[in-house]
Deep mutational scan, measured.
Amino acid sequence: ETFPLDVLVNTAAEDLPRGVDPSRKENFLSDEDFKAVFGMTRSAFANLPLWKQQNLKKEKGLF
């Protein structure tokens, strides 16, 4: 299941849709939104070091 970017960005855990893991908001973006937000594919993002993934998520309001 995916959700629009505005539902996930800068949203407190208690305000997220049911079933969304607040530590993994990026997994609930569509592939198109994911690429638009991070400028890379999911596989490229997954290959980044964890610290870099976290920094990007913070920068984009998805942490």
Rank of each mutant, 00 (worst) to 15 (best):
L48M: 11
K52S: 09
L50H: 12
W51R: 08
E59P: 01
Q53K: 06
S30P: 02
P17K: 04
L56H: 02
V9M: 12
F38T: 01
K60P: 01
W51H: 10
K58N: 07
K25L: 15
G39W: 02
Q53S: 01
K35C: 13
P22T: 06
E59D: 10
A13M: 12
S30H: 05
E32C: 07
W51C: 13
V7Q: 10
A36D: 10
L62W: 09
P17L: 05
K52N: 08
F63S: 15
N27M: 15
D6A: 13
K57T: 02
F28Q: 04
L5T: 04
L8F: 02
K57G: 01
R42H: 03
A12F: 08
F63M: 15
K60F: 07
A36M: 14
K60Q: 07
E59H: 07
V9H: 05
S23P: 04
E1C: 15
N27S: 09
A46T: 10
W51K: 08
V9A: 10
G39F: 06
R24T: 07
Q53I: 02
P49V: 02
L48T: 01
D33E: 09
L29Y: 02
Q53T: 01
T41A: 09
D15I: 06
F28H: 14
Q53C: 01
A44P: 00
L48N: 00
K35G: 08
A44D: 12
D33N: 04
L62V: 05
V20T: 04
D33Q: 06
V20N: 05
F28T: 03
N10C: 14
G61A: 02
A12G: 09
T2G: 07
G61W: 03
G39N: 14
N47V: 11
D21S: 04
L29S: 01
T11I: 11
G61C: 09
F3K: 04
P17Y: 02
P49L: 01
S43D: 13
E14D: 13
L62P: 03
D15V: 07
G19N: 10
A44S: 10
V7T: 10
P17F: 02
N27F: 10
K60L: 10
E14C: 13
L56W: 02
L62M: 08
N55I: 12
V20H: 05
S43E: 13
D6W: 15
F63C: 15
K35M: 15
N47R: 13
N27E: 14
G61L: 06
Q54V: 15
K52M: 14
D15A: 10
V20P: 05
F3A: 03
P22F: 02
Q54M: 14
A36H: 12
N55S: 14
E59C: 11
E14N: 10
P4G: 07
M40K: 01
E59Q: 11
T2D: 03
N47Y: 08
R18H: 15
D21F: 04
P49Q: 02
R18A: 15
G39A: 09
P4T: 08
W51P: 07
V9S: 07
A44Y: 09
D31I: 06
A36S: 13
A46R: 12
V7L: 15
D15T: 07
L16E: 05
R24L: 09
E59Y: 06
A36P: 00
T11H: 08
E14T: 09
F34P: 00
F34C: 01
A13P: 15
E26H: 03
F28C: 07
D21A: 03
W51E: 13
E32M: 10
M40I: 07
P17M: 04
L8H: 04
E59K: 09
L8T: 04
F34Y: 02
E1Y: 13
E14F: 01
K25Q: 06
P22G: 06
G61D: 05
D21R: 03
P49R: 01
F38R: 00
F34H: 00
P4F: 03
D15F: 09
G61R: 03
P22Y: 02
N10I: 07
V20E: 05
E14G: 11
L50F: 12
Q54T: 13
K57Q: 03
E59T: 08
E1K: 14
L5R: 05
S30N: 10
V9D: 04
K25A: 08
L48Q: 03
F3P: 03
N10A: 08
L48V: 01
A36I: 12
K52W: 11
V37Y: 04
K52T: 12
Q53P: 00
M40D: 00
N55R: 13
L16G: 05
K57L: 11
P4A: 08
D6C: 13
N47P: 00
A44E: 14
D6Y: 11
D21I: 06
F38Y: 02
R24D: 04
E26N: 02
D21L: 04
G19L: 07
R42A: 03
L56A: 04
P22L: 04
E26G: 02
E32Y: 10
V20Q: 05
Q53N: 00
K35R: 13
E14K: 15
L62Y: 09
N47A: 14
P22Q: 07
T11L: 10
R42I: 02
N27W: 11
A13S: 12
V7F: 15
K35F: 15
D15C: 15
F28G: 04
F45K: 00
V9Q: 15
P49D: 08
E59F: 07
K60H: 12
D31Q: 06
P4W: 04
T41Y: 03
D33I: 06
S23G: 12
Q54R: 13
A44G: 07
L50A: 12
T11Q: 08
L56M: 11
G39V: 02
T2L: 08
E1I: 15
F38Q: 00
T2E: 06
N55P: 00
V9K: 10
V9Y: 05
A13R: 11
W51Q: 08
V9W: 05
N55M: 14
L29M: 07
D6N: 12
R24P: 03
A13F: 11
E1D: 12
F63A: 15
K58A: 11
L16Q: 04
G61E: 03
P22E: 07
F38E: 00
D6T: 09
T11Y: 07
F45D: 00
L16A: 04
K25G: 04
Q53L: 01
T2N: 06
S30W: 01
D31L: 06
K52A: 11
K60C: 08
K25W: 04
N47L: 13
P4H: 05
F45S: 00
D31P: 08
K25M: 15
P17I: 03
S30M: 03
D6P: 06
L56I: 10
T11G: 14
K60S: 07
N10T: 10
A36N: 11
Q53W: 00
W51Y: 10
K25S: 05
D33A: 06
F28K: 03
S23N: 14
D6K: 10
